[in-house]
Design a protein around this nucleic acid. Structure first.
Lengths: 119, 119
DNA sequence: TCGACGGGTTTATTGAAATAAACCTAATTG
DNA sequence: CAATTAGGTTTATTTCAATAAACCCGTCGA
């Protein structure tokens, strides 16, 4: 498995941790119950797998993230561009935008992000 | 199933058709063999499923696409932005670019695509 | 001192994606 | 006409993501 690959359920779960870390494991069980509808055992199963894969850590019932959300997102974004868009960001953008219209403000923000990446 | 959702294997297969349509089904079997390493039955199984879902058509052994590649890509791009980036294209772009540096030319191209979506 | 609770592990179950073996029938060709 | 080929369908198999039931063990408060 590639280091940062998170499956759908895993990603949602990891988001709980990124948003709440450090979090006690029992509290995480409760949070998963309310936010994801998961049973205790499900939470611990997924938690252990992500720990084994070096993505999370559970030490003394305190759960934290080892990899950052931005790194997981970076992996996810690059994977989709590679797999579905031949590695081409312009192709991705073109497809995403389609006939969608952007406001001036949105366009400015995007262009600023792009500018930023040329420096 | 959402109309345009293609699983990984299905997407690769559909790409063969988008790139070669109209294509005779027997030729498609050969193409899938060489490009994807698929057996004949695999090709026909996947082909039938995509036909049932209204994505491809197989009429008189002639295979064509019903939905366009750009539409499948659009769906894919929007799905990833929703699922992993909270629906925010700026967040996606930021994550994708990371520390990557763009050349002037690449930046221009991206900005042009964005400009285009404001008209 | 026992029962509830915290903090887990072990072991299943289910469902679906990915792939293919085995079979079928009609047409064609040597 | 016998064998091959085209063009499929039917039925499995395998793998793995997603989810959970059932169990375990130490501790702590009543």
């Amino acid at each position: 498995m590639e280091p940062y690959k998170l499956f759908d359920a895993e990603y949602k779960f990891a988001c709980l941790i990124w948003d709440n870390e450090p979090i006690n494991s029992t509290d995480l069980v409760k949070l998963s119950q309310t936010k994801l509808g998961w049973k205790k055992s499900t939470t611990y199963t997924v938690l252990r797998k992500l720990c084994e894969r070096g993505i999370l850590r559970n030490e003394g019932a305190l759960v934290t993230a080892i990899i950052k959300k931005t790194d997981a997102q970076k992996y996810e974004s690059q994977t989709v561009v590679e797999k579905s868009f031949n590695g081409s960001l312009p192709q991705f953008l073109t497809a995403f935008l389609g006939d969608k219209k952007l406001s001036e403000k949105e366009a400015e923000e995007l262009k600023r992000i792009i500018e930023e990446a040329t420096k």
